[in-house]
Design a protein around this nucleic acid. Structure first.
Length: 481
DNA sequence: GGCTCTATGGTCAAATAGAC
DNA sequence: GTCTATTTGACCATAGAGCC
């Protein structure tokens, strides 16, 4: 794959000021492969298709095109570390495309979306089948082809557009010059969610391992420390995989717990229990001159919880070195020293600059339960027992709260501990294997969660949503009464 | 100031594919 | 054939931004 090159924004494939047009990969050709990926059954077959696509880009595009191909399919329009979002909701898309197709939004578009279960799919179908839209769109052979690079630029402009009219202008440009398939894929990418083609980050990392001949574990490690699939793809393409290493203030994908399947089968001698706290997951990075907090989705939480930042600065100055902690932010009443319900914490969520009144009304604390890095030395490959020992020492030295961990020998003791956890107002228990390393970005059976089962209600179905895709012909999201 | 739209934090369960 | 992990497609509550 060739060295990356910059080209101008908007459709087209030439660069001003250069005699030779820069070879960039067409967005339409890319979307056609995505469409084939959606139709293909089986992860391996999908991976083979994507390997072929990357090889085609290698011959007919640039290295940057390869990186964009990986980003668009797994992360959407924006690198998750960029902090950018599309800022174009489903309602605006539906309203504008309804105007464009000269149909009534409420009477036609909304029922269609309900029937297909997908806004982007509805838009694709409308643009393909409505006679009004067809007459406005440029004919396929006269459309100026968009490249992956042009789309990247256009996504950036959409993210930066403050005014609705600016967004509308970009959206109209797409409607007039992209094919219905390209528009569907572009809107799904802009949403930042899944493309719903059955090919996500995990499959892409496996494909990168295939295409480069590197070990999957090596690539997964790079993904963890870089926090971005596309940047992982870049160092794979540039043959710099060995350079991937942890650095402070690049959040690590969280280890997740699976629901406990069978309490009877648990090896009590090799597990430790913790009460499952009802807050939001948080990763703290602290060094001499900087503290940052990250959410489970690796988004910044630093501005939301300045009180936690102050506490972490104090802890860092008493320790001297740097650290990365995994834990939970909880609403906490200092007078009673009790954890407050999640409902209280919700008042703090999403508030970028909380007022002092709000911080006084809903004080929060960070309770640590794992140590990932200490003095820039990675601890996540060590066993839970080793990490726990370091965590205890760090928290006691810095006077930081940390979760209580305990052993049980029998199922009966575990059940008593579970009831006690519920009495404490907690969600249940976490059951962790002492010899497990920190399985970043995975829902692992090494951590299991035991929660209270839901109750049963006597109800009837009043409304239901029609399913789409593999759920076509079925109904979900029932309204009960 | 009120309204609308969007984003973000979290949740859940069923279907499917791959591993064993 | 069974087990397990992943994918998919929804939900709720709340806050912020933009518009009138």
């Amino acid at each position: 794959m060739g060295k990356s090159e910059q080209v101008s924004s908007g459709p087209g494939n030439s660069e001003p000021g250069r005699s030779e047009p820069v070879k960039r990969y067409p967005f339409r050709k890319y979307c056609e492969v995505l469409d084939r990926l959606e139709q293909t059954r089986g992860t391996k077959a999908k991976q083979t298709l994507f390997v072929e696509l990357l090889r085609d880009i290698q011959h007919h595009g640039t290295l940057e095109d390869g990186v964009l191909a990986c980003r668009f399919v797994s992360e959407g329009a924006f690198d998750p570390t960029s902090g950018l979002t599309g800022r174009l909701g489903a309602r605006s898309q539906g309203m504008w495309v309804s105007e464009y197709c000269e149909i009534d939004y409420d009477k036609v578009f909304k029922p269609c979306r309900t029937a297909t279960g997908s806004g982007s799919e509805t838009i694709e179908l409308l643009l393909t089948n409505m006679p009004h839209s067809g007459s406005k769109q440029a004919q396929p052979d006269t459309r100026t082809p968009w490249t992956l690079h042009n789309m990247d630029t256009s996504f950036g402009l959409m993210a930066q557009a403050k005014k609705s009219e600016d967004k509308r202008a970009l959206f109209d440009q797409w409607l007039e010059t992209l094919t219905p398939l390209e528009i569907k894929m572009a809107l799904r990418m802009l949403g930042g969610g899944s493309l719903r083609i059955g090919f996500e980050a995990r499959s892409l990392l496996q494909t990168l391992a295939k295409v480069s001949g590197s070990s999957l574990e090596h690539i997964r490690y790079a993904h963890m420390v870089l926090g971005s699939v596309s940047e992982t793809a870049r160092i794979v393409f540039e043959d710099r995989l060995d350079e991937a290493s942890f650095s402070m203030f690049r959040p690590i994908a969280f280890m997740l717990a699976s629901p406990v399947e069978s309490l009877e089968a648990l090896p009590w001698a090799s597990v430790r229990l913790e009460e499952k706290l009802d807050g939001i997951r948080c990763q703290v990075h602290a060094s001499v001159d900087r503290v940052e907090l990250y959410s489970r989705d690796l988004n910044p939480l630093t501005q939301t919880f300045p009180d936690v930042v102050v506490e972490m600065k104090r802890a860092q100055s008493s320790l001297g070195g740097s650290f990365v902690l995994d834990g939970e932010v909880l609403a906490f009443d200092p007078s009673t020293k009790r954890i407050l319900p999640f409902l209280d914490l919700q008042k703090r969520l999403g508030v970028k600059k909380p007022s002092s009144t709000l911080m006084n009304d809903v004080p929060v604390i960070f309770v640590a339960y794992d140590l990932l890095v200490l003095d820039e030395k990675e601890a996540f490959s060590q066993s839970l027992e080793q990490r726990r020992s370091q965590l205890t020492s760090v928290c006691e030295k810095a006077n930081l709260p940390y979760s209580r961990q305990f052993e049980v020998a029998t199922l009966q003791q575990c059940q008593r501990a579970f009831e006690q956890a519920l009495n404490h107002g907690n969600e249940g228990l976490m059951i962790k294997q002492v010899d497990s390393h920190y399985a970043f970005g995975q829902r692992s059976h090494h951590w299991q969660k035991l929660k209270e089962p839901e109750g049963a209600l006597d109800t009837i179905i009043m409304y239901a949503h029609a399913g789409s895709g593999k759920r076509g012909g079925t109904y979900s999201d029932f309204t009960l009464g």
